[in-house]
Design a protein around this nucleic acid. Structure first.
Length: 322
DNA sequence: AAAAGCTACAACCGCCAAAGT
DNA sequence: TACTTTGGCGGTTGTAGCTTT
């Protein structure tokens, strides 16, 4: 049986609610409660369907609704719960007093989802994105890097082109690094925002989880993961970090320095503690986090932005862009 | 100053499950 | 047991207000 939408019955009003309608609804519910939504509009003197009244009440007029911006704590809770529950907005809402499922859903779609996508995280699975669009950006930057390198083989090569090549390669190198950071960040986000509260995780878990095509196109081998891990934790500045990465002719990572540490080939790549006493992540996040407190989600989201704001790396970017 | 584009959010739609008859 | 009603949920749309060009 196909039912016609209730709001189409008897030319009932649709669209935005007026203050007068709100007042009628609130007055009626305050006096009589809301036992039957079907009959409520008529007895309240509203030309609306019961469903519309219920939505208006539960999503907007209810006295216990908390309005205003979501706090970072609320944002963290939403991400945590979403990673477990998925798009079960009503269930998520039960953990956030005063917030409605609709409000949380909107907040997710307009804010969190975009942030996760920008970080290279699939908002559905909470894992590094494997879709074509994301990989496309990587392949594009690899092409750019290759373009820069091809100039070197051109007989018309000159000083200007050489400079262009150097800068293009450098930019590609940074962008490759950014892609890696996205993967690493997303892994760290998943680990730290999960319920496990893991203190010691391998930041390269995400790299392992990343699509093989991305890894191979970036020229990363297992040894590179290890080397990059070492380089990452030992670098004290963006320059130092970038200096450790050598880009190959084809624009892929040719070599990552700092192979000297952990060269026991019979062991797995070393875990890098996210306590970050010595890591660049720690440096990026500043000193406001204690090693015992779990990192806030905001710091994960903002990690790259902070890296860009960093005096050294920020000017580095500025130089490149200029 | 105006048009176009973007963002946030209220509201609607259609489906589903539980309760009622 | 079958059918109907009702409430709830998640996806989607419409639009007001803001920002950018």
């Amino acid at each position: 049986m196909v039912r016609s939408p209730c709001c189409n019955e008897n030319n009932l009003k649709k669209g935005p609610w007026t203050p007068e309608e709100d007042e009628k609804l609130v007055d009626h519910i305050n006096k009589h409660g809301y036992g039957n939504w079907k009959t409520l509009p008529k007895s309240a003197g509203l030309n609306r369907c019961g469903k519309s009244c219920r939505l208006r009440w539960t999503n907007y007029l209810r006295p216990d609704i908390k309005r205003g911006k979501f706090s970072q704590e609320e944002e963290r809770i939403i991400i945590n719960l979403h990673s477990v529950l998925g798009n079960k907005w009503s269930k998520i809402a039960t953990h956030l007093p005063g917030r409605t499922d609709n409000e949380i859903k909107n907040f997710w779609n307009t804010n969190i989802r975009k942030k996760l996508l920008q970080m290279g995280i699939d908002p559905t699975t909470h894992k590094p994105r494997t879709d074509l669009n994301h990989l496309l950006s990587l392949s594009q930057l690899l092409s750019t890097a290759q373009f820069g390198n091809n100039l070197m083989n051109n007989p018309l090569d000159n000083i200007a082109l050489g400079r262009l090549q150097t800068e293009t390669t450098q930019l590609a190198k940074i962008q490759l690094l950014q892609s890696l950071l996205q993967v690493i960040n997303s892994s760290t986000l998943a680990n730290n925002n999960g319920f496990l509260g893991t203190q010691n995780v391998n930041p390269f878990e995400g790299v392992v989880m990343a699509p093989a095509s991305l890894i191979s196109s970036a020229g990363l081998t297992t040894n590179d993961h290890q080397a990059f891990s070492n380089l990452w934790s030992s670098s004290t500045s963006m320059d130092e970090l970038l200096d450790g990465i050598e880009v190959q002719d084809q624009g892929v990572i040719k070599n990552v320095s700092n192979y000297n540490i952990h060269q026991d080939q019979n062991t797995l790549p070393p875990l890098v503690s996210v306590s970050h006493e010595t890591s660049s992540f720690r440096k990026m996040e500043g000193e406001h986090l204690t090693s015992s407190s779990p990192p806030e989600s905001s710091t994960i989201f903002e990690a790259w932005e902070k890296l860009m704001d960093d005096e050294t790396s920020g000017s580095y970017w500025k130089d490149i862009l200029e």
